[in-house]
Protein backbone atom coordinates (compact mmCIF):
# COMPACT_ATOMS: atom_id res chain seq x y z
CA UNK A 1 0.00 0.00 0.00
CA UNK A 2 0.92 3.63 -0.19
CA UNK A 3 4.16 4.34 1.50
CA UNK A 4 4.06 7.96 2.52
CA UNK A 5 7.81 8.10 3.03
CA UNK A 6 8.37 7.25 -0.67
CA UNK A 7 9.57 9.98 -3.01
CA UNK A 8 7.19 8.78 -5.69
CA UNK A 9 4.20 6.58 -5.11
CA UNK A 10 1.78 5.24 -7.75
CA UNK A 11 -1.28 3.19 -7.02
CA UNK A 12 -3.09 1.48 -9.88
CA UNK A 13 -2.26 4.15 -12.41
CA UNK A 14 -3.88 4.01 -15.86
CA UNK A 15 -3.44 6.30 -18.81
CA UNK A 16 -5.82 6.00 -21.72
CA UNK A 17 -5.47 7.88 -24.98
CA UNK A 18 -8.54 8.20 -27.13
CA UNK A 19 -7.52 7.72 -30.75
CA UNK A 20 -10.73 8.32 -32.66
CA UNK A 21 -12.85 5.23 -32.04
CA UNK A 22 -10.18 3.16 -30.32
CA UNK A 23 -8.70 3.60 -26.88
CA UNK A 24 -4.99 3.15 -26.34
CA UNK A 25 -4.10 1.97 -22.85
CA UNK A 26 -0.63 3.44 -22.54
CA UNK A 27 -0.61 2.42 -18.86
CA UNK A 28 -2.88 -0.21 -17.43
CA UNK A 29 -2.96 -0.37 -13.64
CA UNK A 30 0.62 0.39 -12.67
CA UNK A 31 1.61 0.49 -9.02
CA UNK A 32 5.10 1.56 -8.18
CA UNK A 33 6.98 3.21 -5.41
CA UNK A 34 10.41 4.79 -5.59
CA UNK A 35 12.36 5.77 -2.51
CA UNK A 36 14.71 8.70 -2.28
CA UNK A 37 18.24 7.70 -3.26
CA UNK A 38 17.26 4.82 -5.56
CA UNK A 39 18.86 4.13 -8.94
CA UNK A 40 16.14 2.67 -11.18
CA UNK A 41 16.19 1.58 -14.80
CA UNK A 42 12.94 1.15 -16.70
CA UNK A 43 13.15 -1.12 -19.72
CA UNK A 44 10.59 -2.41 -22.19
CA UNK A 45 9.77 -2.54 -25.87
CA UNK A 46 8.93 0.58 -27.74
CA UNK A 47 5.34 1.56 -27.02
CA UNK A 48 5.21 -0.29 -23.72
CA UNK A 49 4.45 2.90 -21.83
CA UNK A 50 7.84 3.89 -20.42
CA UNK A 51 7.70 7.52 -21.49
CA UNK A 52 4.12 7.84 -20.40
CA UNK A 53 5.11 6.56 -16.98
CA UNK A 54 8.02 8.99 -16.82
CA UNK A 55 5.80 11.93 -17.83
CA UNK A 56 3.41 11.12 -15.02
CA UNK A 57 6.25 10.78 -12.49
CA UNK A 58 7.61 14.09 -13.77
CA UNK A 59 4.24 15.85 -13.37
CA UNK A 60 4.16 16.65 -17.07
CA UNK A 61 1.10 14.50 -17.53
CA UNK A 62 -1.69 13.31 -15.29
CA UNK A 63 -3.09 9.78 -15.13
CA UNK A 64 -6.58 8.88 -16.31
CA UNK A 65 -7.08 6.74 -13.22
CA UNK A 66 -5.24 5.91 -10.04
CA UNK A 67 -3.50 7.80 -7.32
CA UNK A 68 -0.14 9.43 -7.80
CA UNK A 69 1.73 11.13 -4.99
CA UNK A 70 5.05 12.93 -4.68
CA UNK A 71 6.50 12.94 -1.17
CA UNK A 72 3.11 11.85 0.08
CA UNK A 73 1.30 14.71 -1.64
CA UNK A 74 -1.36 13.75 -4.14
CA UNK A 75 -0.73 15.19 -7.61
CA UNK A 76 -4.45 15.42 -8.34
CA UNK A 77 -4.75 18.09 -5.66
CA UNK A 78 -2.06 20.31 -7.17
CA UNK A 79 -2.70 23.37 -9.33
CA UNK A 80 -0.86 23.84 -12.60
CA UNK A 81 1.27 26.42 -10.90
CA UNK A 82 2.24 24.13 -8.06
CA UNK A 83 3.08 21.37 -10.51
CA UNK A 84 5.29 23.77 -12.48
CA UNK A 85 7.06 24.75 -9.26
CA UNK A 86 7.59 21.10 -8.31
CA UNK A 87 9.01 20.34 -11.77
CA UNK A 88 11.24 23.33 -11.34
CA UNK A 89 12.59 22.53 -7.89
CA UNK A 90 12.26 18.77 -7.38
CA UNK A 91 12.66 17.20 -10.80
CA UNK A 92 15.34 17.33 -13.46
CA UNK A 93 14.58 16.08 -16.97
CA UNK A 94 17.04 14.69 -19.51
CA UNK A 95 15.68 13.81 -22.93
CA UNK A 96 16.94 11.60 -25.73
CA UNK A 97 17.14 14.56 -28.14
CA UNK A 98 18.80 16.85 -25.55
CA UNK A 99 16.17 19.55 -26.22
CA UNK A 100 18.57 22.45 -26.07
CA UNK A 101 17.54 25.89 -27.35
CA UNK A 102 19.08 26.67 -30.72
CA UNK A 103 21.72 29.39 -30.98
CA UNK A 104 21.87 29.83 -27.21
CA UNK A 105 25.12 29.57 -25.24
CA UNK A 106 25.45 26.63 -22.89
CA UNK A 107 25.36 28.64 -19.67
CA UNK A 108 22.13 30.35 -20.76
CA UNK A 109 20.53 26.94 -21.29
CA UNK A 110 21.62 25.82 -17.86
CA UNK A 111 20.34 29.04 -16.33
CA UNK A 112 16.75 28.47 -17.54
CA UNK A 113 15.37 26.60 -14.50
CA UNK A 114 16.86 29.29 -12.25
CA UNK A 115 15.10 31.96 -14.30
CA UNK A 116 11.79 30.27 -13.59
CA UNK A 117 12.79 29.88 -9.94
CA UNK A 118 13.27 33.65 -9.72
CA UNK A 119 16.93 33.42 -8.83
CA UNK A 120 18.69 36.76 -9.27
CA UNK A 121 20.67 37.13 -12.45
CA UNK A 122 24.12 37.38 -10.92
CA UNK A 123 23.58 34.32 -8.72
CA UNK A 124 22.01 32.31 -11.51
CA UNK A 125 24.97 32.82 -13.83
CA UNK A 126 27.33 31.66 -11.11
CA UNK A 127 25.24 28.58 -10.38
CA UNK A 128 24.92 27.77 -14.08
CA UNK A 129 28.70 27.85 -14.42
CA UNK A 130 29.05 25.64 -11.35
CA UNK A 131 26.63 23.11 -12.80
CA UNK A 132 28.58 23.14 -16.07
CA UNK A 133 31.76 22.52 -14.10
CA UNK A 134 30.04 19.58 -12.43
CA UNK A 135 29.56 17.94 -15.83
CA UNK A 136 33.06 18.95 -16.94
CA UNK A 137 32.00 21.65 -19.38
CA UNK A 138 33.14 24.81 -17.62
CA UNK A 139 35.41 25.50 -20.58
CA UNK A 140 32.47 25.40 -22.98
CA UNK A 141 30.08 27.72 -21.15
CA UNK A 142 29.80 30.14 -24.08
CA UNK A 143 29.46 27.50 -26.76
CA UNK A 144 26.22 27.13 -28.66
CA UNK A 145 24.68 23.68 -29.28
CA UNK A 146 25.98 23.47 -32.86
CA UNK A 147 29.50 24.03 -31.53
CA UNK A 148 29.25 21.05 -29.18
CA UNK A 149 29.40 17.28 -29.76
CA UNK A 150 26.38 15.09 -28.99
CA UNK A 151 27.89 13.94 -25.71
CA UNK A 152 28.68 17.51 -24.70
CA UNK A 153 25.16 18.63 -25.60
CA UNK A 154 23.72 15.90 -23.42
CA UNK A 155 26.02 17.00 -20.59
CA UNK A 156 24.71 20.55 -20.97
CA UNK A 157 21.20 19.11 -20.68
CA UNK A 158 22.24 17.23 -17.55
CA UNK A 159 23.76 20.39 -16.06
CA UNK A 160 20.43 22.10 -16.79
CA UNK A 161 18.58 19.26 -15.05
CA UNK A 162 20.86 19.56 -12.03
CA UNK A 163 21.23 23.28 -11.63
CA UNK A 164 18.23 23.74 -9.36
CA UNK A 165 19.37 20.81 -7.15
CA UNK A 166 16.40 18.51 -7.73
CA UNK A 167 15.84 15.40 -5.64
CA UNK A 168 14.78 13.32 -8.66
CA UNK A 169 16.40 13.05 -12.05
CA UNK A 170 14.33 11.54 -14.87
CA UNK A 171 16.16 10.56 -18.04
CA UNK A 172 14.27 9.23 -21.07
CA UNK A 173 16.74 7.25 -23.19
CA UNK A 174 19.56 9.68 -22.40
CA UNK A 175 22.14 7.66 -24.34
CA UNK A 176 19.83 6.84 -27.25
CA UNK A 177 21.34 9.48 -29.53
CA UNK A 178 24.94 8.92 -28.44
CA UNK A 179 27.62 6.44 -29.48
CA UNK A 180 28.67 3.77 -27.01
CA UNK A 181 31.68 5.60 -25.67
CA UNK A 182 29.99 8.94 -25.00
CA UNK A 183 26.96 7.04 -23.70
CA UNK A 184 29.32 5.42 -21.24
CA UNK A 185 30.65 8.83 -20.17
CA UNK A 186 27.15 10.14 -19.60
CA UNK A 187 26.26 7.09 -17.53
CA UNK A 188 29.40 7.51 -15.44
CA UNK A 189 28.30 11.07 -14.80
CA UNK A 190 24.82 9.93 -13.74
CA UNK A 191 26.32 7.43 -11.36
CA UNK A 192 28.60 9.99 -9.82
CA UNK A 193 25.53 12.15 -9.19
CA UNK A 194 23.69 9.19 -7.73
CA UNK A 195 26.51 8.59 -5.32
CA UNK A 196 26.15 12.19 -4.27
CA UNK A 197 22.54 11.43 -3.29
CA UNK A 198 20.41 12.06 -6.36
CA UNK A 199 17.50 9.72 -7.07
CA UNK A 200 17.90 8.42 -10.60
CA UNK A 201 15.25 7.00 -12.95
CA UNK A 202 16.59 6.09 -16.37
CA UNK A 203 14.57 4.76 -19.26
CA UNK A 204 16.67 2.77 -21.65
CA UNK A 205 16.73 0.26 -24.44
CA UNK A 206 20.32 -0.62 -23.75
CA UNK A 207 20.79 -3.83 -21.76
CA UNK A 208 24.25 -2.91 -20.53
CA UNK A 209 23.00 0.36 -19.21
CA UNK A 210 20.02 -1.24 -17.48
CA UNK A 211 22.36 -3.69 -15.80
CA UNK A 212 24.17 -0.91 -14.04
CA UNK A 213 21.05 0.20 -12.19
CA UNK A 214 20.28 -1.09 -8.70
CA UNK A 215 16.71 -1.80 -9.62
CA UNK A 216 15.26 -2.73 -13.00
CA UNK A 217 11.61 -2.39 -13.90
CA UNK A 218 10.43 -4.08 -17.04
CA UNK A 219 7.30 -2.96 -18.82
CA UNK A 220 5.16 -4.48 -21.52
CA UNK A 221 1.87 -3.24 -22.96
CA UNK A 222 1.35 -0.71 -20.23
CA UNK A 223 1.98 -2.95 -17.25
CA UNK A 224 5.02 -3.70 -15.14
CA UNK A 225 5.96 -7.30 -15.87
CA UNK A 226 8.91 -7.44 -13.55
CA UNK A 227 10.57 -5.43 -10.88
CA UNK A 228 13.92 -6.52 -9.49
CA UNK A 229 13.04 -4.96 -6.18
CA UNK A 230 10.79 -7.72 -4.83
CA UNK A 231 9.52 -5.64 -1.99
CA UNK A 232 7.70 -3.31 -4.35
CA UNK A 233 6.86 -5.69 -7.18
CA UNK A 234 3.33 -5.00 -8.23
CA UNK A 235 0.44 -7.34 -8.04
CA UNK A 236 -0.25 -6.82 -11.70
CA UNK A 237 3.22 -8.07 -12.50
CA UNK A 238 2.44 -11.40 -10.83
CA UNK A 239 -1.02 -11.56 -12.25
CA UNK A 240 0.43 -11.52 -15.73
CA UNK A 241 2.56 -14.40 -14.70
CA UNK A 242 5.64 -12.75 -15.96
CA UNK A 243 7.41 -12.07 -12.76
CA UNK A 244 10.93 -13.26 -13.36
CA UNK A 245 12.15 -11.00 -10.68
CA UNK A 246 13.95 -12.91 -7.99
CA UNK A 247 13.28 -11.43 -4.59
CA UNK A 248 16.97 -10.97 -4.12
CA UNK A 249 18.10 -8.44 -1.59
CA UNK A 250 21.28 -6.43 -1.90
CA UNK A 251 23.72 -6.59 -3.57
CA UNK A 252 21.39 -5.60 -6.34
CA UNK A 253 23.59 -6.36 -9.34
CA UNK A 254 22.96 -10.04 -8.59
CA UNK A 255 19.28 -9.49 -9.06
CA UNK A 256 19.95 -7.90 -12.38
CA UNK A 257 21.94 -10.91 -13.52
CA UNK A 258 18.94 -13.07 -12.84
CA UNK A 259 16.69 -10.69 -14.69
CA UNK A 260 18.77 -10.57 -17.81
CA UNK A 261 16.99 -13.17 -19.92
CA UNK A 262 13.66 -11.67 -19.14
CA UNK A 263 14.81 -8.27 -20.26
CA UNK A 264 16.39 -9.37 -23.50
CA UNK A 265 13.05 -10.82 -24.36
CA UNK A 266 11.41 -7.54 -23.61
CA UNK A 267 13.69 -5.25 -25.54
Amino acid sequence: MADSSALVDMQNISKVYQMGETKVHALNGVSLSIEAGEYVAIVGTSGSGKSTLMNIIGLLDSPTEGVFAVRGQRASGLTGRQMADLRNREIGFVFQQFNLLARTPAWRQVELPLFYANVARSASRKRALEALAQVGLDERADHKPDELSGGQQQRVAIARALVNRPSLLLADEPTGALDTRTGEEVMALFEKLHEEGLTLVIITHDQEIAERAHRVITMRDGVIVSDSDAATTTASGFRNGLSGAAPAPLPRPVAIEQDKEEMYEAV
Binding site: D85, R87, F93, L112, P113, Y116, A117, N164
Partner: peptide, 16 residues
Protein backbone atom coordinates in the same frame (compact mmCIF):
# COMPACT_ATOMS: atom_id res chain seq x y z
CA UNK B 1 6.36 24.33 -29.85
CA UNK B 2 9.18 22.15 -28.59
CA UNK B 3 10.87 25.09 -26.89
CA UNK B 4 7.63 25.94 -25.12
CA UNK B 5 7.24 22.33 -23.98
CA UNK B 6 10.79 22.36 -22.68
CA UNK B 7 10.29 25.62 -20.81
CA UNK B 8 7.18 24.21 -19.16
CA UNK B 9 9.05 21.04 -18.21
CA UNK B 10 11.72 23.22 -16.62
CA UNK B 11 9.12 24.97 -14.49
CA UNK B 12 7.74 27.84 -16.58
CA UNK B 13 4.30 28.95 -15.46
CA UNK B 14 1.58 29.75 -17.97
CA UNK B 15 2.18 33.42 -17.21
CA UNK B 16 5.90 33.02 -17.97
Amino acid sequence: TKEIGLRKALGAHTSD
